[in-house]
Design a protein around this nucleic acid. Structure first.
Length: 649
DNA sequence: TTAGGGTTAG
């Protein structure tokens, strides 16, 4: 038997049967039987609700047929929704269920439309929607939300807009909040924030979901001012809205503001959940200070969200401890976690890589691939970074080759940048240049920047010129590239070219980010030092401590590395400049204020120079102290005269 | 029966 529904879909011409005639065809059911049927329907729906596999659903379906309810849209729509939920393809089984019904109601149609919207193809969902309208079956709000969701997943802005224009009036949804909230989300996800805002502004009535959708959209677009403005106007702020602000600030590099929102949230008596804590921990990770790290962990545990049972909090803690310089604590958290996902493994691998523990990172990767957890693109960035920091070129090459073949992770532009970094830092500059040329995508500033950085390390002004000029086109206002090229010329003694680069910087009115280092003092107070800066209240003691240290180092054979000063100056002048590098000042201060047994933790905004690097090595030996320096890329652990980076940085 | 907040890299 060819069902009516199938004929309707196939036909371009509307069927002559109207809704009234469908009603007329319903058999008469006595009242008590009706009650009995309703009870049975509810029972079947709750049975379906508890299904988690196709076999179970088919068993219930067989039961539905036995009970003579094979035409009951209420039950069958639920059945279709459950099939969608467990991701059963709409063709053939769910589709067959739909076609076997003679007179589908809007909920049954919508369940199928929703299935296609989620699974694709979206065209099929739209085709069904049109067929439904041709049959004069009015869409319900759920029909439109399903279609908008499909459009936002597929980024089909125009289609979404068409459905918006026709559908809203057609179904009388002008005041429907569900429909409008989904619509805001659709416009925002399709990249049209202004359209989302327009929908919001014109809404008949708004709830906290409408506001939060837009707040999140602004924060994801990097416009925190607009997000804050909306948030402050939001009349009743709930847990999700507050969390959106905490995570929005953290995402946009405003960790202090994130913590302020969290404190306000607590004062307002709003509950806290795992997602809020993840945002708080991520803010503390950016602050990089032990004081905040320990505070964040105490807060999480105080709310009952310890890492053992909460995989998201655990993963965020791993990342935080790594970024705060404490990779041992990060690993302790990792070990405590009962459930580990790709975030936990990747954060730990990246953490090891940042700290120069290449073998630990690679061993953990091997352990990970033996589990059910599949590595993703970030995992591979972590292992490639580990190889880079340890100079493991062949291992990196092998992983890069295998990532697509064995692990089905397509190498992205970032992975190519990692490989260029790996080859470049290991001194294989020609190979790195060849790889840039062979990339299947247009090389971006990350790729060229990695090459330029490597040229600076290995003193290759010829390749640096190629990379530098490409970077000047891609990022004309980024001062770092000019400085790197200038320094490469300087290390080769090409002072005229250095002047040319400086002229360019002047013409463009670019300002160099001053080199600065900071150290966490007692009770979490941050002390900051700039290169050549003697304004710290204890600068006299700092200077004395530094001179004392230099004297002791010199007697052990330390000689300043004058090529670390990219200026054409006298040797004596270069020596003096080197002695006031901010990390050396921070180290001297650290020796004064920290306990003898503890590690000295220094943070720095730029890459550590060769001279400071060997200075730290020597200082760690003669003072017997562990010195941990976080530069703009990674961590250096100096112990007994050796750095964890093995001089690859 | 549909809608809002999330962690890893750069």
């Amino acid at each position: 038997m060819v069902s009516l529904a199938r004929k309707l879909i196939a036909s371009r011409n509307p069927s002559p049967i109207s809704l009234e005639s469908q009603e007329a065809l319903q058999p008469f059911i006595p009242f008590s039987r009706l009650q009995e049927t309703k009870l049975l329907e509810s029972h079947l729906v709750s049975l379906l609700d508890n299904c988690s596999s196709l076999i179970q659903i088919k068993q219930v379906h067989a039961h539905v047929i036995r009970k003579g309810l094979d035409q009951c849209c209420y039950v069958l729509a639920k059945l279709l929704r459950m099939l969608t939920k467990i991701n059963v393809p709409m063709n053939p089984y769910p589709r067959l269920v739909f076609h076997q019904v003679e007179y589908g109601n809007p909920f049954l149609w919508t369940a199928l439309i929703r299935g296609y919207s989620i699974q694709g193809p979206l065209e099929e969902a739209v085709h069904l929607y049109n067929a439904m309208r041709r049959e004069d079956i009015s869409p319900v709000s759920f029909t439109l939300t399903a279609l908008f969701k499909g459009c936002s997943d597929e980024l089909e802005l125009n289609l979404g807009r068409q459905i918006h224009c026709h559908g809203i009036k057609l179904g009388g949804f002008c005041k429907d909040m569900f429909v409008h909230n989904t619509l805001i989300d659709m416009y925002v996800k399709c990249g049209c924030l202004d359209c989302g805002r327009k929908v919001f502004d014109e809404m008949y009535e708004r709830d906290v979901i409408s506001w939060t959708s837009l707040i999140v959209a602004y924060s994801k677009a990097g416009d925190m001012a607009a997000a804050v403005e909306l948030f402050e106007r939001l009349p009743v702020k709930d847990l999700v809205a507050w969390t959106a602000m905490v995570s929005g600030c953290a995402r946009n590099g405003k960790p202090r503001e994130a913590l302020e929102f969290f404190h306000r949230m607590q004062s307002a008596g709003v509950e806290t959940d795992e997602l809020t804590l993840v945002a708080v921990i991520s803010a503390c990770a950016q602050l990089g200070a032990a004081k905040y790290a320990n505070w964040a962990r105490d807060v999480a545990e105080g709310y009952g969200f310890g890492p053992a049972n909460h995989v998201m909090v655990g993963s965020a803690l791993i990342d935080m401890y790594s970024k705060c310089g404490n990779v041992e604590e990060a690993y302790k958290v990792f070990e405590k976690m009962r459930e580990k996902n790709v975030f936990s493994y990747s954060s730990m691998i990246v953490g090891f890589a940042m700290h120069g523990c290449a073998n630990a990172a690679l061993d953990l990767f091997e352990e990970m691939v033996k589990t059910e957890v599949k590595p993703n693109k970030v995992t591979f960035i972590g292992v490639l970074m580990a190889c880079t920091h340890a100079g493991l070129v062949e291992r990196g090459r092998d992983l890069f080759d295998r990532m697509e073949k064995h692990y089905v992770v397509e190498p992205s532009i970032e992975h190519y940048a990692c490989m260029i970094d790996l080859l470049g830092r290991a001194g294989q500059l020609e190979e790195a240049l060849e790889l840039i040329k062979a990339m299947p995508m247009e090389p971006n500033s990350g790729a060229w920047g990695a090459l330029l950085g490597a040229c600076r390390i290995h003193g290759n002004p010829e390749i640096a010129e190629v990379a530098g000029h490409r970077l000047f086109e891609l990022e004309p206002d980024s001062i770092g590239n000019y400085v790197l090229l200038g320094n490469t010329y300087a290390s080769a003694g090409r002072w005229e070219d250095v002047l040319e680069v400086r002229k360019l910087i002047k013409q463009k009115l670019l300002r160099k980010d001053p080199s600065r280092s900071w150290i966490e003092g007692k009770e979490g107070v941050i002390h900051e030092f700039y290169a050549g800066d003697m304004t710290h209240p204890n600068s006299k003691e700092v200077k004395e401590a530094l001179e004392d240290l230099v004297g002791r180092l010199k007697s052990c054979g330390y000689e300043p590395n004058l090529s670390s000063v990219p200026y054409d100056l006298s040797e004596e002048h270069k020596r003096r400049i080197l002695l006031t590098h901010s990390e050396k000042l921070a180290l001297a201060y650290g020796l004064l204020i920290t306990d003898t047994g503890s590690a000295i933790r220094i943070m720095k905004n730029l890459r550590i120079c060769e001279d400071c690097h060997s200075f730290m090595c020597g200082a760690s030996q003669i003072t017997g102290r562990e010195i941990i320096v976080r530069d703009n890329k990674r961590f250096h652990h100096f112990r007994n005269g050796v750095c964890s980076c093995g001089n690859f940085w």
